[in-house]
């Protein structure tokens, strides 16, 4: 009808604003909770010494920075090694039980993070069941403990972030058109070759997302070291968390936090380039 057409034409200019209006809450959120805090932390990181705070962050934490990222990277790799096959089996072979299996992956995470970390401490502690069994089987020496070692921290990190790896990989595997997989054998490709040439590339977005969801929080984690680590395993998160209260360290620790962020960003960009997933994500 004519009336409708004319009214649509009238509305058009204001409609152009609708997407922007819809973005307002997000923009306000990001401004208040991201941009402003980042700006004030940036300012703080330049107090008492300016850019030397950044130089000092690298020299003072010569061991801390590589250790933090080493642990985060190790946990990410372990999560991939454990999570990919798990996601694959659920997506490809789960059948009717898919939802149940996914629920089982997530179920332990209904318990709070803190309680799970404490539970690991109780399980792995020197007087805990795991250590006692390993002691009595003479797999580890009587005076060797599990808690307070790098493997314990990496293990706890891997445990805590495993679902964040499994779920995105599952989603991208689940999305794959099964007909593409049937083509592989038709063209005389082995199962492995089909996986390598078809399944794996198509699941890269999930792998990429899972790796980010694991690596980034693992890099900033401090709870796991607090409970299953010791002073020798401390990560950037521990140093910042324990000392940010103390005023004199705030500029240096702000600088350290930016260094942490910069390294994560660089790592992510590098990883994206390596996987060639820029256009996929």
């Amino acid at each position: 009808m004519a009336g409708q057409a004319s009214s649509a034409a009238d509305v058009q200019p204001s409609q152009r604003w609708i997407p922007w209006m819809l973005m307002v809450p997000g923009i306000v959120w990001l401004t208040v909770f991201f941009a402003i805090p980042m700006f004030s932390m940036g300012k703080l990181s330049l107090e008492n010494g300016g850019f030397s705070n950044y130089r000092n962050a690298f020299s003072d934490y010569r061991e801390l920075i590589p250790r933090t990222f080493g642990y985060a990277l190790a946990a990410t790799v372990i999560c991939i090694l454990l999570g990919y096959p798990l996601a694959y089996v659920i997506a490809m072979r789960g059948g009717r039980r898919k939802n149940l299996l996914l629920a089982l992956v997530v179920l332990p995470f209904f318990t709070t993070y803190l309680i799970r970390a404490i539970s690991w401490r109780i399980l792995l502690g020197d007087r805990g069941p795991v250590t006692r069994v390993l002691h009595s089987l003479h797999i580890i020496g009587q005076n060797t403990s599990i808690v307070g070692t790098a493997p314990a921290v990496i293990g706890a990190l891997s445990y805590n972030f495993l679902p964040f790896m499994v779920l995105p990989i599952y989603v991208s595997l689940e999305k794959i058109d099964r007909k593409l997989l049937e083509v592989g054998p038709d063209l005389y490709a082995s199962g492995w070759r089909t996986f390598r040439k078809v399944t794996l590339p198509l699941s890269l977005p999930g792998l990429f997302a899972g790796s980010l969801l694991t690596f980034i929080p693992a890099s900033g984690d401090f709870i796991n070291v607090e409970f299953v680590g010791s002073d020798a395993q401390r990560m950037i998160g521990n140093v910042v968390a324990n000392n940010f209260v103390k005023e004199q360290f705030r500029p240096g620790l702000s600088a350290l936090s930016f260094v942490l962020m910069a390294i994560i960003l660089l790592g992510v960009l590098l990883y994206a380039r390596l996987l060639g997933t820029e256009e996929l994500v």
């Binding site: 709870i223 607090e226 324990n242 209260v245």
Partner: peptide
Amino acid sequence: IVRGGALGVTGLSLPA
């Protein structure tokens, strides 16, 4: 242990 752990977390966030 539990209390200490909880304290560790809340204790550092509040003053900060």
